[in-house]
Design a protein around this nucleic acid. Structure first.
Lengths: 183, 183
DNA sequence: AAGTTTATTAAAAATATATTTAACGTTTAA
DNA sequence: TTAAACGTTAAATATATTTTTAATAAACTT
């Protein structure tokens, strides 16, 4: 191999590394550990990888790769693929960022809506009990009403968030915000 | 104070606590520590609080409250307020979830777009150098082109994310997804 | 200007999270 | 049926993060 060929290879690797670094650095936003982030970013430029290839590439232990892959599978940024004739499991990175965005945020926001809406419903029931209770003083009733109204108001947000999730899931959001504006 | 009055008070507290628990539990999504999450959720039902009130309410140290407040201020979920006649600093929780959503995610996504777009631009420059280099073998050129195209494709996503941020910031998104659908 | 109240920074301790080495179980091939 | 290959779990270690106690700095009062 000639020297300039070698230089070109290195330059390609450096180019990839710049992007790998940036992706990995912003992936804390997706709640993954730095090593899972590094793994995903590395896989982003590969067709598929086995656990052994990962540990070689990242110079880490196999169990570590195993747990990282599992975490990435959870948020669907990595999928298992079947590779004929190989006993090793092979994995591919989801390379469509729109899909990753959808899966991750919808999952997250749905959890937020569900958990908070349930708590609000329960809390409002309690507050209504207090309001209706004939033994409650006017002051207590006023207090209960205040909180009831605050919670009622916050529901507007959770309903909106739920709508946002629905419009991302259905793809309707891309009618409003096209993926490719000028096309 | 009568016994049933006391019961009502407790019931109100329990109602609040349910919501506080739910908010705090989902706030890991906003990248804050459990204690900062607890603090915000507690403040959500208060007009304003001083550091001393926080430490009393949460039974934690003052520096701990100080750092939590600072973190919450960073993502604009808490603001400092001026209270006439008090030497203590007072803080209020942002109670408009739409605002919190906007500030937090826009901040986050802008960082993601900026960092990755910059890396991509640099990487693409490098790859073009390799492609134009007359000493590069066809195989290397093909490789460089492959990665160049992959990066070019990913820009569609980052531009879209940038548009999303803009439409949230400007409020235009609420034309598409109204806050209050039936109203 | 001295003393007091308040918030922040620094250092130490405690806790939680990630990572590795070692052991285990399962599958496949000889 | 045994041995080898592979992935996962468990326990131990290492590393980061959070939290506290103690010390410092800043702002106000008298």
């Amino acid at each position: 191999m000639s020297e300039s060929t070698e230089k070109s290879r290195i330059k390609i690797e450096e180019a990839k590394d710049k992007v790998i670094g940036a992706i990995a650095e912003t992936m804390d936003l997706y709640g993954v550990t730095p090593s899972a982030a590094n793994l995903y970013a590395t896989m982003y430029f590969k067709d598929q990888m086995t656990l052994d290839e990962m540990r070689t590439e990242l110079e880490m232990s196999k169990p570590s790769m195993s747990t990282s892959v599992r975490k990435l599978q959870e948020i669907e940024m990595v999928k298992k693929t079947f590779t004929r004739g190989s006993r090793k499991h092979t994995y591919v990175a989801e390379k469509n960022f729109f899909r990753s965005f959808m899966v991750f945020y919808c999952q997250m926001w749905e959890r937020e809506v569900k958990m908070n809406m349930e708590a609000i419903e329960e809390a409002q029931k309690d507050l209504i009990d207090v309001i209706k209770d004939s033994t409650s003083t006017p002051e207590i009733v006023a207090d209960a009403k205040k909180y009831y109204d605050q919670l009622e108001g916050s529901k507007t947000y959770y309903r909106w968030l739920d709508d946002l999730v629905a419009s991302i899931r259905s793809g309707k959001i891309f009618e409003f915000l096209p993926k490719d504006p000028q096309a």
